[in-house]
């Protein structure tokens, strides 16, 4: 029988990895999304289109790319990131970054032009405009964060390839569900699955709440 502490540990690893990847994902998406949406530059259309295509990247492929980069013979092999939570964070980041960036670009492309004209007349800097856009549409940005977090915490393939499901280190909820189910501990898999679904539902409720109350 599996110990409760191991289940809690898997939940904690899942939350930690997904939280950090979402945090990085959001701030970098905000930066690049704002830049792409507000500036005109060569190949902009192509970049937006590539980002759009990457929103549906299979997690296993994202994991494979990260694996090739951070494995011992890869360009970042010297950093010894393979089978660490950091590797899982990078893989999840690669999955959620295009999703969050595309959502932010779509939103800013609609909101920015009329706001820019008026706010520039008040002497606002680009930073002021961005801050006002965030303050004014907190719900939209929180929704984007939750969408990213939801995608990160529920994915299995990428984190499994680069994390390796090492006990106490990289065995998150999805890895434990796969492992315990394979071992025949269906009940544990069901319990963890129920927790994961509850988290997803909680995120959905959060998204609906912010949409309604914004």
């Amino acid at each position: 029988m599996i110990e409760l502490s191991k289940v809690l540990e898997a939940i904690s690893i899942s939350l930690h990895v997904s939280f950090v990847s979402t945090l990085f994902g959001f701030f970098l998406s905000l930066f690049f999304g704002y830049l792409i949406a507000t500036q005109e530059f060569l190949f902009k259309k192509y970049i937006v289109s590539i980002l759009g295509s990457l929103t549906s990247i299979p997690p296993v492929c994202a994991g494979l790319v990260v694996y090739l980069i951070i494995s011992r013979s890869g360009p970042l092999g010297w950093m010894e990131l393979l089978y660490t939570p950091s590797a899982m964070i990078i893989a999840q980041f690669i999955i959620i970054f295009p999703i969050m960036t595309t959502l932010i670009i779509n939103y800013i492309e609609q909101e920015y032009p009329p706001l820019k004209e008026e706010l520039l007349s008040y002497g606002a800097s680009q930073r002021d405009i961005l801050m006002l856009m965030i303050i004014n549409q907190k719900g939209i940005y929180l929704t984007i964060v939750l969408i990213g977090f939801g995608r990160a915490i529920s994915e299995y393939g990428a984190a499994a390839i680069v994390g390796g499901s090492i006990d106490h280190v990289t065995r998150n909820m999805t890895a434990m569900i796969a492992l315990e189910t394979a071992k025949g501990n269906i009940m544990i898999g069901v319990i963890l699955g129920a927790i994961l679904i509850s988290l997803s539902l909680l995120i959905s409720f959060g998204i609906n709440y912010f949409k309604k109350n914004d």
């Binding site: 008026e118 007349s121 008040y122 002497g123 606002a124 002021d128 006002l132 303050i135 004014n136 549409q137």
Partner: peptide, 30 residues
């Protein structure tokens, strides 16, 4: 340089009337 002007669809922030009255002054501490 441009000066504050009244647009046809001016900026509305999701907050109170007073907040909307004051917020733009904070940009450049007018």
């Amino acid at each position: 340089q441009p000066i504050p002007m009244l647009f046809q669809k001016p900026l509305i922030l999701k907050n109170t009337v007073k907040y909307n009255y004051q917020i733009l002054h904070k940009i450049k501490k007018f």
